[in-house]
Amino acid sequence: MRVNAVLPAISTPMYEEARSRMTEEKLAANDAENQREIPLGGKNGDPDEGLGPVMVFLASDASKFITGQLLPVDGGQASVR
């Protein structure tokens, strides 16, 4: 049995809804924080482009010798915290 965990920083409808309620000032602050904290692109990833391929990999035989891992899919955010 294999058990791995994916730790995503991905844009979701809930995240986009929260952003739509932010003032321009809070939006700018959120964007600036993302630019500082996410080295690869400065924003949360796209679910189809960033997360989907990782999930397909983990579900495939290509990952059959990987277990017990925490896999950040966060544009490098975990490495700068």
Rank of each mutant, 00 (worst) to 15 (best):
P72N: 07
E33N: 11
P13D: 12
E17G: 11
D74K: 01
K43Y: 03
E17A: 15
R19E: 10
K43R: 15
A32N: 08
R21H: 13
D61K: 10
F65N: 05
Y15S: 12
A28V: 08
M55W: 00
Q35I: 12
T67C: 04
Y15E: 07
E24I: 09
G68C: 02
L51D: 03
A62L: 13
G50F: 02
P39L: 11
E17S: 14
P47M: 06
E25S: 10
E16N: 10
E25K: 10
A32W: 11
P39H: 09
Q35R: 15
M22P: 03
N34D: 15
N34P: 01
S60V: 02
G41R: 03
M14R: 11
A18W: 13
D31N: 14
E25T: 11
E37A: 12
L70K: 03
V56E: 05
R36M: 14
P72Y: 09
M14E: 12
N44P: 08
S63I: 05
A32K: 14
V56Y: 03
I66A: 08
A62H: 06
F65H: 07
K43I: 11
A29S: 12
S60A: 06
E25L: 10
M55A: 13
D48G: 03
G52R: 01
S60D: 02
L71W: 01
A28H: 05
